[in-house]
Amino acid sequence: MAIIETKELTKHYILGRKKIVVGLEKVNLEINQGEIFGILGPNGSGKTTCLKLLLGILFPTSGEAYIMGRPPHDIEMKQHVGFLPENPYYYDYLTGPELLWFYAGLFGLDIDTAKKRIEYLLELVELHTAKRLHLRHYSKGMLERIGLAASLINDPEILILDEPTTGLDPIGCRDTRNLLLKLKEQGKTILLSSHFLSEVERVCDRIAIFHRGYLLATGTLDGLNKQYQAENLEDLFVKTICKFDNQQNVTTGETT
């Protein structure tokens, strides 16, 4: 059974009268328990839109989304989900630990559990030396790290990460990769979006390629490479996208 599922999920952004931007178009995704699933796609292809729809930050134009069989606004479901937004930005005037305490409270963790968890997470993302620093003095990578820690505060079953390694240094990237693999071993499900193909190649069990709001391809890396006669992920990425653009040009060429 799919633990994350979308059915014909569609999002059209309405900008003024008659101006519509397609964010996502009839996307059907199924993500299984215990896998690491990567969403790839050029800028503006709808990755973030898809993740936001799953979590109820945006409302779909049509279609449905489910996590653990529950709709995006379900409170019970959110108890088991961790989310890292892209370019995370947090309360300027809090310190790292204070931010984590705040979220721990929202999840209803008791004080002892929260305390242990926060200590552990700060060590994990190597921010235990910056405990008293306000978040407004954090560097980009430090914000990304505290965001990752914050998304893990409730020890989530499902982790949704929007570009988790953007802004991290090479060591940070490697650590994040290892962390994700470790979480997978613990049986967690991870859905992430990324532009780093080599990262995705190394951690993801299955991938999806988005373009202009459409889901072009989904499957295991090997399977897709065979299907599209591609040599590696980069080749696959370029091929699927070019193929789609060509088809689009043909169809629009015919109609005009």
């Binding site: 019970e76 959110k78 930005y89 309360y91 979220y103 929202l106 999840f107 914050a150």
Partner: peptide, 12 residues
């Protein structure tokens, strides 16, 4: 500041 993204994905 988009802090609301994270906030609304919590059980709230």
């Amino acid at each position: 500041r988009r802090t609301i993204y994270t906030l609304l994905t919590k059980p709230i």
